[in-house]
Simulated scan of single mutants.
Amino acid sequence: MTNLEQHLTRQMAFSRATYGPGERRKGVCDHIRKEIEKEILKDGVDAAEAATEFVDLVLLSLDGLWRALEASGVEWERIPYVATQMITAKQGRNEQRVWPDWRTMSADKAIEHDRTVPEVIS
């Protein structure tokens, strides 16, 4: 099994050397938009091709995450650990939220949690 912290350390080094330093928030978001519009939602893209493009979104999101953490003052060496902890914590919060029955929802629209239910922070 691949360790996410090890992957992030590798990706961060490649990304900084290839794309440069700094937050680059607008650039990362622009690239994400292009991947979605021109690669994932493009007519004729099958599920296997879409899966490959979703990997690009994961990598771009991780790129944006480490850059935002660095810009917020997290030390370079701690970014992979902090990012992994944030991902794990967010998954936990999502699991605690109240969600509608997916069978009653459109497959073409986002399924969002019930915002009228107070969140329990654990």
Rank of each mutant, 00 (worst) to 15 (best):
I111N: 03
E23V: 02
P80K: 04
A17T: 14
V28L: 06
N3P: 04
R25P: 00
D46N: 15
W99A: 07
W66N: 10
V82G: 09
E75L: 08
E53A: 05
Q85D: 12
T9P: 00
E49Q: 14
E23I: 06
N3E: 08
A83D: 04
L4Y: 01
I32L: 14
Q6V: 04
V120D: 04
A50N: 01
K34T: 03
T9L: 10
G92V: 06
M1Y: 06
L41Q: 02
A107C: 13
R25L: 05
H31G: 03
Y19V: 00
A17N: 15
R115F: 02
R97D: 05
K26L: 08
K90E: 09
N94H: 12
D101G: 06
G44C: 04
D43R: 08
I87S: 09
F14E: 12
D30P: 00
G73A: 02
A47M: 14
N94T: 04
G64W: 13
A51G: 00
I36Q: 00
T116L: 14
G92S: 14
E37Q: 05
I87D: 13
R97S: 08
W66V: 02
A110Y: 00
S61L: 08
W66C: 04
D114K: 01
I40V: 11
S106A: 13
V82K: 06
E39W: 10
V117K: 14
T116C: 05
S15L: 12
M105A: 12
T84M: 10
L65P: 00
L69T: 07
E49T: 09
A13E: 15
S61I: 00
R25Y: 09
Q85A: 15
M12F: 11
R78V: 01
E77T: 01
E70L: 13
M86L: 15
I79C: 12
N94D: 15
D43L: 02
S15F: 01
L57T: 06
H113R: 10
C29W: 00
H31C: 07
R93F: 09
V45A: 02
K90R: 15
I111G: 02
T9K: 14
A48F: 11
W66D: 10
R16A: 14
E53F: 11
N3C: 09
T116E: 12
A13L: 15
L59V: 09
T104H: 12
K42R: 10
Q91P: 00
Q6A: 14
K26T: 09
V58L: 15
V120M: 04
K109R: 09
L57P: 03
T18F: 13
L4K: 11
D46H: 06
D101Y: 08
G27Q: 12
E53S: 12
V74Y: 07
H7E: 07
R25V: 06
T9C: 03
W102P: 02
Q85Y: 05
A47W: 13
E70W: 02
N94E: 15
I40W: 01
I111C: 04
D114L: 04
T18I: 08
G22M: 01
M1I: 06
G22C: 06
D56T: 02
R33T: 10
L62Q: 07
V45D: 01
A13F: 11
